[in-house]
Design a protein around this nucleic acid. Structure first.
Lengths: 122, 122
DNA sequence: TTTCGTTATTCCCATCTGTATATTACGACT
DNA sequence: AGTCGTAATATACAGATGGGAATAACGAAA
């Protein structure tokens, strides 16, 4: 291939992918959910975490609720009312989940990079 | 874990994922597209291929068109009119694409299975 | 008991994806 | 020339997804 210049029409392909943990109700942990957990840890509040991700509170709350429903020990504990109106904090299980997912995520990206090089189409 | 019986609330997690090839316009090849290519090869027609997958002809045609737009040598050649009204056939490049994807797909599933076992949450 | 900010929950709406449907273009064969 | 079945294309519709706004519940602190 390759004329003197100009993009070949089949240039620039790259391997992409997603991984997630699935539970009884469907997705349990994925990239977005883990980032959300981290923001909750950082801000101590679902609403602040959501805002920082440009995500609606409604959506964030549903994700948290979905995760908590699928485990015996919740990943996030919430409190309504009280000082500051309430808040949310990450549990031990939440911390473990974050760690476990990033480990998986790194392994997966490694796989993607390695595999990407060995692909030939035309 | 495990009480005498009954499902633990954190049972049954499994790793899932998707991989695809991305080109200039977004997705170029993924699982569904490859199955579609195989059906086109089998039936010699986009409409029959679509029907066999419970997919609308419109959608199938758009997928084929999207794939063809992103390469110099089309994966599918179509003919309008003529014997039987026309049809579609897989090109050499189409065959290669199928092969390449399944190879990738197998490697990915291997990764998933291997990785799934090494994950601990709680 | 009043205040306050967050969680919890409910509606309505915009957007997106794909379906269903209808119409036209096409060209080898009879 | 007429027939036939598929490709090609446009339009209207349905369902799912998430956003935004509105409201109620909550409980510690003043």
């Amino acid at each position: 291939m390759s004329g003197k210049r100009g993009k070949s029409k089949s240039e620039g392909f790259r391997l992409k992918g997603r991984v997630w943990i699935e539970g009884r109700e469907g997705t349990f942990l994925g990239y977005g959910r883990v980032v959300l957990l981290e923001r909750i840890k950082q801000f101590g509040s679902i609403s602040e975490a959501a805002k920082s991700m440009n995500m609606s509170y409604r959506h964030a709350w549903e994700l948290v609720d979905s995760m908590n429903r699928q485990v015996k020990n919740p990943l996030v504990e919430t409190a309504t009312g009280g000082k500051g109106g309430g808040g949310a904090r990450l549990t031990e299980a939440g911390e473990k989940a974050i760690e476990a997912f990033w480990k998986l995520y790194r392994d997966f990206n490694e796989f993607l990079e390695k595999t990407d090089k060995s692909i030939k189409f035309t």
